[in-house]
Every structure is written in structure tokens, then in C-alpha cells.
């Protein structure tokens, strides 16, 4: 069954905000687990969250992570926010 977007968005934002004190970047699988969905289903929602600028990508070059837009040390340190 397709995931409800608004419901999924609320779940992700709530969980990620809760964890902000300790962690600001998350693996794709962490997000899929929050949604309790298969990766392909979760990807549709996560792509849209990026399009709507709620989430943003972070990449080391070899690995990609996701975070709430504008959060974490780097956004401030590099003047990218």
C-alpha cells in the first residue's frame, strides 16, 4: 500500500527533530525504518521531502546521508544556510 505523504512527513520530521541533540545526519535505511516501509516505497516519500526542501542531502563523496534542512554543524560553519 502506498504511504500517505503528510503522515509520513510528520513521522520523519518528529523523529529527526527528537534526535537533533545527538545526531543531525541519517542513513536512508534509518528513514525507511521510521516509515516502517520497504526501501522503494520509502524512497518516493523521501524524494518528495527533498524536493520540498524539508530534507537535504549530505555526502562525503562515497556515502550519502539525509538531514533536516539547515540543521547540523556544517550548514553554519560553511555559510551554506
Amino acid at each position: 500500500m502506498a504511504l500517505d505523504y503528510e503522515e509520513s512527513k510528520a513521522k520523519i520530521v518528529e523523529k529527526l527533530q527528537k534526535k537533533l541533540k545527538t545526531k543531525s545526519k541519517f542513513y536512508f535505511n534509518d528513514l525507511a525504518k521510521i516509515l516502517e516501509a520497504k526501501p522503494r516505497e520509502a524512497k518516493k516519500v523521501i524524494n518528495r521531502l527533498v524536493q520540498e526542501e524539508i530534507l537535504e542531502y549530505w555526502s562525503s563523496g562515497s556515502t550519502s546521508l539525509y538531514g533536516l534542512k539547515g540543521t547540523g554543524k556544517q550548514a553554519h560553519a560553511e555559510d551554506e544556510d
Binding site: 527533498v50 524536493q51 537535504e56 542531502y57 549530505w58 555526502s59 562525503s60 563523496g61 538531514g67 547540523g72 556544517q74 550548514a75 560553511e78 551554506e80
Partner: peptide, 9 residues
């Protein structure tokens, strides 16, 4: 190490 830059989408 790494960063948040990219092109939109």
C-alpha cells in the same frame, strides 16, 4: 570531510 552542497534535486 564532505558537505551539503549539490544541485537542486
Amino acid at each position: 570531510h564532505g558537505g551539503i552542497v549539490g544541485v537542486f534535486g
